[in-house]
């Protein structure tokens, strides 16, 4: 047996797993090879050191932390909606943000870029008050200010109703 062959069986030699013939060959090699003898002694010491390495232990609250985790998992299983929400919370928030952006963009586009469209600002619909009066005037070729004058006439004067001496006060100011 040479040093290379001894290396291959050194573990079996230590664990006494060699056949009688192999063991005899190994012993003969060890008797004439101080390097392999030293290696064998060193290896036995190393294995002993590995076996006696200090053993770490879990912290005292290990079990309570584990049971708390299990309890949390049980609760998640009981309410699958919450579990799905937690699982996909990022996706859901991104989707919500995109939806909000699209909705805002649509609103701005329809009310600012296309003011004549039906979805424009409320002020656009105020202009079309009294459509019945404005429409025939436009059709007859009347100017808009004339048409609006006729429309204003139709409105009641609320001040006059509430203050009976309204007209006389105006007259005094004019004098």
């Amino acid at each position: 047996m040479d040093c290379y062959s001894f290396d291959k069986v050194i573990s079996d030699y230590i664990e006494s797993n060699l056949s009688a013939k192999q063991k005899q060959e190994a012993n003969e090699h060890l008797a004439q090879c101080p390097a392999c003898s030293e290696k064998l002694g060193d290896m036995a010491q190393l294995l002993d050191a590995l076996r006696t390495l200090p053993k770490p232990v879990t912290r005292p609250d290990f079990e309570s932390r584990l049971m708390a985790r299990i309890e949390r998992q049980k609760q998640q299983k009981e309410s699958p909606f919450i579990h799905v929400f937690h699982e996909y919370s990022r996706v859901i928030s991104v989707a919500a943000a995109v939806l909000l952006f699209v909705a805002t963009s649509l609103f701005v586009y329809t009310s600012v870029v296309l003011p004549g469209s039906p979805a424009s600002f409320p002020s656009a619909s105020i202009r079309s008050v009294e459509p019945a009066a404005a429409l025939p005037a436009a059709a007859a070729g009347v100017r808009p200010e004339q048409a609006s004058g006729t429309a204003e006439k139709a409105l009641p004067d609320t001040n006059r109703v509430k203050n009976p001496d309204y007209n006389s006060r105006i007259m005094m100011v004019n004098e």
Binding site: Q45, L46, D48, A49, L50, T52, L53, P54, P56, V57, R59
Partner: peptide, 17 residues
């Protein structure tokens, strides 16, 4: 809680191992 510097029974230190 755990000291890797602690020497084992042999001349190999735990940290080295």
């Amino acid at each position: 809680d755990f000291d890797p510097e602690k020497e084992t029974t042999s001349n190999y230190g735990e940290k080295q191992i």
